[in-house]
Design a protein around this nucleic acid. Structure first.
Lengths: 221, 221
DNA sequence: AAATATTTTTAGATTAATCTAAAAAAATAA
DNA sequence: TTATTTTTTTAGATTAATCTAAAAATATTT
């Protein structure tokens, strides 16, 4: 087990993310876009990660994570999301403020710290954006959820997550009171611009743009 | 305000520590010993830190921190000690386990996080080893304390800190129940080996070696 | 004050992580 | 199936942080 740098960790996370999103091997270009580095830098790094046994790499063929690489990536995501819960639940940050801090905290290497933090937080299964937190073995809790936009008239449910994690979107959701746990019922689809009308918390009718409805995950009830 | 790397931060901390301990400009060799790097590496780094306006450096003359360098060093110490309090008070680590984790956590860059952590912990003035935590402006709380060895027969007081921060010493103190807050009265000095006899918490008489008595700070009452 | 010892700096390399520009391979279009 | 475009890799540099070995400066001892 060699040492692994922060930078290498970030590449593993990027590869994991791409694989999850695109459901195939990550290309050099995809990684370079995800990391905001040049394709040449990515190629260099892929060679290094491959030598360390963290990825499967064949020239021109894209890469996948080895079992070990995958484990490290999941552990990073675990740490990132646990720290986000800490920042929001204990230090009262809001969900749009915590990403950059968690991005740093996820690189802290101290396995016992992670386990104790998990316990201190009450073994949360989801982070402040509704994303699942892998357990110590790397397993995610799955949840049936669908974008608000894909619900049918009359369907009811609860806001459980977001697709877009941008500050702008999260702050906008706060304004609309569309926070995690909010109850929504789909009232109407407007074909013209694909906007939707919802009933929020059984009280208030509201119209949401297609963009908002697309990026909001609902668990139907 | 340029970027400052973890490594540069560690050098600033080392220089601060040496200046505090030796009360004079830090020499290249002292820094090289403190950091476990070669003297040549130190010289290289001193040039860089000097260019960034963090230290006053003249060849062959040793270095001191500039106002800015000093501020950064104190902030690092603040972060280190606050994180130690977090680890002990909230995550139930013991005082001999937290150093390495705090060594990583002190490099997290997020000023608001530090202030919120401070508040969450109840604005502690001392860390789990009894070392003072600088406030947001970098000021330490001073406390009148003396090594147990320098107390006079009959003097009473409370354990408030340690000089030696090694795991071995801290674990030994746990065994002897000489934790922070313990009440001690000096009963006798043995000239032969400079060991001392104390009365611990008004109950138990105990003999302590010179080495222990030297490294334990007491606040007299 | 000269000789010796110690400390500090310089010179020259190395490694990780990055870049741009050019070459090579693979994919797509004509 | 060529020709063109896109993607990926290689070549060659750069910067931060480190090293060893040698040179230079400073401090200490005789």
């Amino acid at each position: 087990m060699e040492n692994i740098s922060h930078t290498e960790e970030n590449y593993l996370k990027a590869i994991f993310k791409i694989a999850e999103r695109e459901e195939k091997a990550a290309s050099t270009n995809a990684i370079s876009a995800e990391m905001s580095t040049s394709a040449a830098s990515v190629t260099d790094m892929l060679k290094r990660l491959s030598e360390k046994g963290l990825i499967h790499y064949e020239k021109y063929k894209g890469v996948t994570l080895t079992a070990n690489g995958d484990k490290i990536a999941r552990h990073l995501i675990r740490k990132h999301r646990l720290w986000e819960v800490f920042l929001v639940d204990k230090l009262d940050f809001s969900w749009d403020e915590v990403h950059d801090m968690a991005e740093q905290l996820e690189h802290i290497q101290a396995p016992e710290l992670v386990e104790r933090l998990d316990a201190f937080l009450g073994f949360p299964k989801f982070d402040p954006h509704g994303d699942p937190i892998p357990d110590a073995k790397g397993n995610f809790t799955f949840r049936k959820q669908s974008p608000l936009l894909e619900m049918s008239i009359g369907d009811q449910g609860v806001v459980v997550g977001v697709q877009d994690h941008s500050t702008a979107f999260l702050q906008y959701l706060d304004r609309l009171r569309l926070v995690l746990g909010a109850k929504v019922q789909l009232v109407e689809h407007f074909e013209y611009d694909e906007s939707v009308k919802i009933l929020l918390n059984g009280e208030q009718e509201q119209i949401l743009s297609k963009k908002v409805a697309q990026n909001l995950f609902i668990q139907k009830s």
